Computed example of a mutant assay.
Amino acid sequence: MTISDVGGAPAVTTPRRAARLRRYAMTAPTFFAVEYAINPWMDTSVPVDTALATRQWEILLSTYRDLGHAVELIEPIAGLPDMVYAANGALVVGDRAVVARFAFPQRAGEAVAHAEWLTRRGFEPAFTRHTNEGQGDLLVVGSIILAGYGFRTDRRAHDEVAHLTGLPVVSLELVDPRFYHLDTALAVLDDSTVAYYPPAFSPQARARLRSTFPDAIEVGSADAYALGLNVVSDGRHVLLPAAATGFADQLSQAGFEPIGIDLSELLKGGGSVKCCTLELYS
């Protein structure tokens, strides 16, 4: 926000936010299930309603299209229940796609599927030697990449990603296993604005975020624990978990337009709006 002096009285002016049309890829939760537990959100004893997950996912898909964004669909594959979390499959910048190298063998097949899909669409697949989990831990903000490590992506992969994309990478250490991917603890709102949950990061990472983004929105525990930072923004409209009402208020005060999406069934696997959305950065 900015402060102006009109008629002798200071007034707070909310900045104008501009949307930019985006290109996304998504995978339907046709085979979604919680068959194993590889993050603190997953509980194999809790039943999953795949039909409900599909209906919720379809609302997210239609919301993107109603806003004018292009969405391409990646065919789901039986035996890959986490494939609905399309963001984890790659980092796509321009014509280069850095394909994921997953930490857990249960998800390895997703990397193969993503590489084949991206190749068919004219992208050039590239691979890291060390573990990286795509846009789960690699988030583009303007002309830089914020890169998480500590639970899934190997810190050594960050240098590889910088080399493959030509973009500078800022490494951020995650310290709370509930926030095992960067996109569960930090949201990119536009090319210069982020929101994040400070306790999810090491002291050094928090200091780096504060120096790089002095106007960042710091989100409270209630919203973070609803996976409220797992959002997708077009620069104006911010699609976020419906339960993150406090964060929605913060977004409104900052000039964004929050749109709550109920993905409660997919939250059982540890993912929400961003996890389900692979952005194809131009």
Rank of each mutant, 00 (worst) to 15 (best):
D262N: 09
E133V: 04
A162I: 06
D5M: 14
P168V: 06
V231I: 10
E257M: 05
Y281T: 11
V112R: 12
L251G: 01
E279F: 07
V93M: 02
N132W: 09
D95E: 13
E124T: 14
L227R: 00
H237W: 04
D66A: 09
L267M: 08
E58P: 15
F151T: 09
V188N: 08
R55Y: 02
Q135C: 01
A11K: 03
L67C: 06
C276S: 13
H69A: 02
W117F: 04
G122Q: 10
A90E: 05
I259R: 14
G7E: 00
E116C: 03
W57V: 13
E58W: 03
Q253Y: 05
T165F: 08
Q135E: 14
A9R: 11
A78S: 13
G89L: 09
N39W: 05
A25Q: 12
V12M: 11
A113G: 10
P203D: 02
G228M: 07
A115S: 14
P29W: 03
E218A: 04
V238Q: 11
A185Q: 12
V170E: 08
P203C: 00
K274A: 10
E116Q: 08
I59N: 09
T54S: 10
S143W: 01
L240Q: 01
W117V: 04
I217E: 04
F127R: 15
V238P: 00
A187I: 07
T27Q: 00
A78C: 09
E160D: 12
L167A: 08
H237Q: 05
R16T: 01
H69Q: 03
V140Q: 13
I217T: 05
S192H: 10
T119K: 11
D262L: 03
Y149K: 00
I3T: 15
A157H: 15
V92K: 14
A25W: 03
F213T: 14
T153Q: 12
N230C: 02
T131N: 09
L167P: 15
F151E: 13
G136E: 11
P198N: 07
E124N: 13
I77V: 15
T245M: 07
A207W: 09
H114P: 10
F213G: 14
I74V: 11
L146W: 04
I38T: 12
L146E: 12
A19Y: 00
L229F: 00
E35P: 15
R129A: 06
P199D: 05
L61P: 11
T131R: 06
A90C: 11
R155S: 05
L172N: 02
T14G: 00
M83K: 14
A162R: 14
W57Q: 11
T245K: 15
G235Y: 04
V170Q: 02
V141Q: 08
P241Y: 01
D66W: 04
G148V: 06
